[in-house]
Protein backbone atom coordinates (compact mmCIF):
# COMPACT_ATOMS: atom_id res chain seq x y z
CA UNK A 1 0.00 0.00 0.00
CA UNK A 2 1.44 3.36 -1.05
CA UNK A 3 0.89 6.11 1.51
CA UNK A 4 1.60 9.84 1.46
CA UNK A 5 1.89 11.03 5.07
CA UNK A 6 2.76 14.29 6.73
CA UNK A 7 3.12 15.74 10.17
CA UNK A 8 3.05 19.36 11.35
CA UNK A 9 1.86 18.81 14.91
CA UNK A 10 5.22 19.22 16.64
CA UNK A 11 8.19 21.56 16.13
CA UNK A 12 9.02 19.89 12.82
CA UNK A 13 7.54 19.48 9.38
CA UNK A 14 7.89 16.06 7.80
CA UNK A 15 6.53 14.38 4.69
CA UNK A 16 7.00 10.83 3.44
CA UNK A 17 5.86 8.61 0.61
CA UNK A 18 6.11 5.04 1.84
CA UNK A 19 5.34 1.70 0.25
CA UNK A 20 3.92 -0.19 3.23
CA UNK A 21 3.73 -3.91 2.63
CA UNK A 22 3.51 -7.17 4.51
CA UNK A 23 7.27 -7.68 4.62
CA UNK A 24 8.15 -4.17 5.71
CA UNK A 25 8.16 -0.63 4.51
CA UNK A 26 10.09 0.97 1.69
CA UNK A 27 10.53 4.70 1.95
CA UNK A 28 10.21 6.14 -1.55
CA UNK A 29 10.94 9.69 -0.43
CA UNK A 30 11.18 11.49 2.88
CA UNK A 31 11.72 14.96 4.26
CA UNK A 32 12.14 16.00 7.84
CA UNK A 33 12.77 19.58 8.82
CA UNK A 34 12.86 20.82 12.41
CA UNK A 35 10.95 24.10 12.61
CA UNK A 36 9.05 25.88 15.34
CA UNK A 37 6.80 27.89 13.04
CA UNK A 38 5.94 28.53 9.42
CA UNK A 39 4.44 25.08 8.75
CA UNK A 40 1.54 26.65 6.84
CA UNK A 41 3.97 28.28 4.43
CA UNK A 42 6.32 25.36 3.72
CA UNK A 43 4.06 22.32 3.87
CA UNK A 44 2.78 22.38 0.28
CA UNK A 45 6.23 22.81 -1.25
CA UNK A 46 7.54 20.03 0.97
CA UNK A 47 4.78 17.70 -0.17
CA UNK A 48 5.28 18.61 -3.84
CA UNK A 49 9.03 18.02 -3.58
CA UNK A 50 8.63 14.73 -1.73
CA UNK A 51 6.12 13.49 -4.31
CA UNK A 52 8.47 14.45 -7.09
CA UNK A 53 11.43 12.75 -5.35
CA UNK A 54 9.32 9.61 -5.06
CA UNK A 55 8.44 9.92 -8.72
CA UNK A 56 4.73 9.39 -8.12
CA UNK A 57 1.55 11.35 -8.73
CA UNK A 58 -1.55 11.51 -6.55
CA UNK A 59 -3.30 8.88 -8.66
CA UNK A 60 -0.47 6.46 -7.82
CA UNK A 61 -1.28 6.66 -4.09
CA UNK A 62 -3.54 4.35 -2.10
CA UNK A 63 -4.17 6.64 0.82
CA UNK A 64 -3.21 9.74 2.77
CA UNK A 65 -2.23 9.82 6.44
CA UNK A 66 -1.78 12.76 8.78
CA UNK A 67 -1.00 13.29 12.45
CA UNK A 68 -4.02 14.45 14.43
CA UNK A 69 -2.12 15.54 17.55
CA UNK A 70 -1.69 16.05 20.37
CA UNK A 71 0.76 18.84 19.66
CA UNK A 72 0.46 22.56 19.04
CA UNK A 73 -3.18 23.45 18.30
CA UNK A 74 -2.14 25.44 15.25
CA UNK A 75 0.22 22.78 13.94
CA UNK A 76 -2.44 20.10 14.31
CA UNK A 77 -4.95 22.19 12.39
CA UNK A 78 -2.48 22.97 9.61
CA UNK A 79 -1.95 19.27 8.95
CA UNK A 80 -5.52 18.08 9.35
CA UNK A 81 -7.06 20.92 7.29
CA UNK A 82 -4.55 20.42 4.47
CA UNK A 83 -5.04 16.65 4.52
CA UNK A 84 -8.82 16.93 4.42
CA UNK A 85 -8.58 19.36 1.51
CA UNK A 86 -6.29 16.95 -0.30
CA UNK A 87 -8.61 14.02 0.40
CA UNK A 88 -11.51 15.99 -1.04
CA UNK A 89 -9.45 16.90 -4.09
CA UNK A 90 -8.15 13.40 -4.79
CA UNK A 91 -10.92 11.16 -3.48
CA UNK A 92 -8.21 9.21 -1.63
CA UNK A 93 -8.99 7.68 1.76
CA UNK A 94 -7.49 9.69 4.63
CA UNK A 95 -6.56 8.27 8.01
CA UNK A 96 -5.39 10.01 11.17
CA UNK A 97 -2.56 8.84 13.41
CA UNK A 98 -1.81 10.39 16.79
CA UNK A 99 1.62 11.87 17.39
CA UNK A 100 1.80 9.57 20.44
CA UNK A 101 1.38 6.48 18.29
CA UNK A 102 3.80 7.73 15.62
CA UNK A 103 6.42 8.38 18.31
CA UNK A 104 5.84 5.00 19.92
CA UNK A 105 6.23 3.35 16.52
CA UNK A 106 9.61 5.07 16.16
CA UNK A 107 10.66 3.89 19.62
CA UNK A 108 9.43 0.30 19.32
CA UNK A 109 12.48 -0.72 17.29
CA UNK A 110 14.81 0.35 20.10
CA UNK A 111 13.41 -2.05 22.68
CA UNK A 112 11.78 -5.42 23.00
CA UNK A 113 9.37 -4.13 25.62
CA UNK A 114 6.70 -1.50 25.95
CA UNK A 115 7.09 2.07 24.72
CA UNK A 116 5.61 5.24 26.15
CA UNK A 117 5.33 8.41 24.13
CA UNK A 118 5.61 11.58 26.21
CA UNK A 119 5.27 14.98 24.58
CA UNK A 120 6.03 18.30 26.23
CA UNK A 121 2.60 19.92 26.55
CA UNK A 122 3.96 23.10 28.23
CA UNK A 123 2.25 24.54 31.34
CA UNK A 124 4.11 21.90 33.35
CA UNK A 125 2.34 18.98 31.71
CA UNK A 126 3.04 16.17 29.24
CA UNK A 127 0.85 14.32 26.78
CA UNK A 128 1.47 10.66 27.49
CA UNK A 129 0.38 7.20 26.38
CA UNK A 130 1.89 3.74 26.78
CA UNK A 131 1.96 1.06 24.07
CA UNK A 132 3.08 -2.54 23.90
CA UNK A 133 5.93 -3.31 21.53
CA UNK A 134 3.44 -4.20 18.81
CA UNK A 135 1.78 -0.81 19.42
CA UNK A 136 -1.35 -2.00 21.21
CA UNK A 137 -2.34 0.85 23.56
CA UNK A 138 -1.74 -0.01 27.22
CA UNK A 139 -3.10 3.29 28.58
CA UNK A 140 -5.43 6.03 27.44
CA UNK A 141 -3.77 9.16 26.02
CA UNK A 142 -3.87 11.94 28.60
CA UNK A 143 -2.38 15.29 29.53
CA UNK A 144 -0.97 15.25 33.06
CA UNK A 145 1.93 16.46 35.19
CA UNK A 146 5.12 14.39 34.85
CA UNK A 147 4.51 12.95 38.33
CA UNK A 148 1.02 11.81 37.36
CA UNK A 149 2.44 10.49 34.07
CA UNK A 150 4.79 8.32 36.12
CA UNK A 151 1.74 6.89 37.90
CA UNK A 152 0.06 6.19 34.57
CA UNK A 153 3.13 4.34 33.30
CA UNK A 154 4.07 2.50 36.50
CA UNK A 155 3.86 -1.23 36.02
CA UNK A 156 4.59 -1.05 32.30
CA UNK A 157 8.33 -0.26 32.65
CA UNK A 158 8.46 1.28 29.19
CA UNK A 159 11.12 2.97 27.16
CA UNK A 160 10.08 6.62 27.12
CA UNK A 161 10.34 8.55 23.85
CA UNK A 162 9.39 12.04 22.73
CA UNK A 163 10.07 15.62 23.82
CA UNK A 164 8.61 14.73 27.20
CA UNK A 165 11.15 11.96 27.89
CA UNK A 166 13.71 14.43 29.22
CA UNK A 167 11.08 15.98 31.48
CA UNK A 168 10.08 12.56 32.78
CA UNK A 169 13.69 11.63 33.49
CA UNK A 170 14.27 14.88 35.39
CA UNK A 171 11.18 14.32 37.52
CA UNK A 172 11.27 10.60 38.24
CA UNK A 173 14.67 9.34 37.06
CA UNK A 174 15.04 5.66 36.23
CA UNK A 175 13.79 4.64 39.66
CA UNK A 176 10.29 3.80 38.51
CA UNK A 177 11.69 1.21 36.13
CA UNK A 178 11.43 3.45 33.08
CA UNK A 179 14.21 3.37 30.54
CA UNK A 180 15.56 6.25 28.55
CA UNK A 181 17.72 6.05 25.46
CA UNK A 182 19.82 8.89 24.12
CA UNK A 183 18.98 7.62 20.64
CA UNK A 184 15.22 7.72 21.27
CA UNK A 185 13.28 9.96 18.88
CA UNK A 186 12.05 13.30 20.23
CA UNK A 187 9.70 14.30 17.43
CA UNK A 188 7.16 12.37 15.40
CA UNK A 189 8.08 11.63 11.80
CA UNK A 190 5.93 11.14 8.71
CA UNK A 191 7.54 7.76 7.90
CA UNK A 192 5.98 6.25 11.00
CA UNK A 193 2.73 8.11 10.35
CA UNK A 194 2.59 6.41 6.95
CA UNK A 195 3.22 2.92 8.36
CA UNK A 196 0.69 3.30 11.16
CA UNK A 197 -1.76 4.89 8.76
CA UNK A 198 -1.46 1.89 6.45
CA UNK A 199 -2.82 -0.53 9.04
CA UNK A 200 -5.86 1.52 10.12
CA UNK A 201 -9.39 1.24 8.79
CA UNK A 202 -10.05 4.04 6.32
CA UNK A 203 -13.81 3.89 6.03
CA UNK A 204 -14.66 6.04 9.05
CA UNK A 205 -15.40 9.76 9.19
CA UNK A 206 -12.51 12.08 8.23
CA UNK A 207 -9.94 12.41 11.02
CA UNK A 208 -10.45 15.24 13.50
CA UNK A 209 -7.79 17.07 15.44
CA UNK A 210 -6.97 15.35 18.71
CA UNK A 211 -6.24 18.25 21.05
CA UNK A 212 -6.49 16.54 24.46
CA UNK A 213 -7.11 20.00 25.90
CA UNK A 214 -10.27 22.06 25.95
CA UNK A 215 -10.14 25.53 24.43
CA UNK A 216 -9.16 28.26 26.84
CA UNK A 217 -12.45 30.06 27.22
CA UNK A 218 -14.30 31.16 30.28
CA UNK A 219 -18.02 31.58 30.38
CA UNK A 220 -18.91 35.10 31.50
CA UNK A 221 -20.01 35.42 35.11
CA UNK A 222 -23.67 36.21 35.34
CA UNK A 223 -24.29 39.24 37.50
CA UNK A 224 -27.97 38.55 37.97
CA UNK A 225 -28.84 35.00 38.72
Amino acid sequence: MRVLAFDTAMPACSVAVVECGGAGAEILAHRFEPRARGHAEVLMDQIAETMSDAGVGYSDLDRLAVTTGPGTFTGVRIGVAAARGMALGTGLPLVGVTTLEALAAAGAGLTGGSVAAAIDARRGEVYVQCFSNDLTPLSEPCVVTPADAADVLRGHTPLIVGTGARIMRDVCGEAAGFTFDAAAPELSDACHVACRGAVKPSDGPPPSPFYLRAPDAKLPQRKDG
Binding site: T74, A81, G85
Partner: peptide, 19 residues
Amino acid sequence: LIGGIIAGLMTAKGLALVT
Protein backbone atom coordinates in the same frame (compact mmCIF):
# COMPACT_ATOMS: atom_id res chain seq x y z
CA LEU B 1 -8.69 35.43 13.50
CA ILE B 2 -5.52 33.59 12.56
CA GLY B 3 -6.57 30.09 13.68
CA GLY B 4 -9.62 30.10 11.45
CA ILE B 5 -7.78 31.70 8.54
CA ILE B 6 -5.16 28.93 8.70
CA ALA B 7 -7.84 26.23 8.56
CA GLY B 8 -9.47 27.64 5.43
CA LEU B 9 -6.20 28.56 3.78
CA MET B 10 -4.74 25.07 4.28
CA THR B 11 -7.90 23.40 2.99
CA ALA B 12 -7.64 25.54 -0.15
CA LYS B 13 -3.92 24.95 -0.54
CA GLY B 14 -4.44 21.20 -0.23
CA LEU B 15 -7.14 21.32 -2.90
CA ALA B 16 -4.99 23.46 -5.20
CA LEU B 17 -1.92 21.26 -4.74
CA VAL B 18 -3.59 18.01 -5.69
CA THR B 19 -5.67 19.44 -8.52
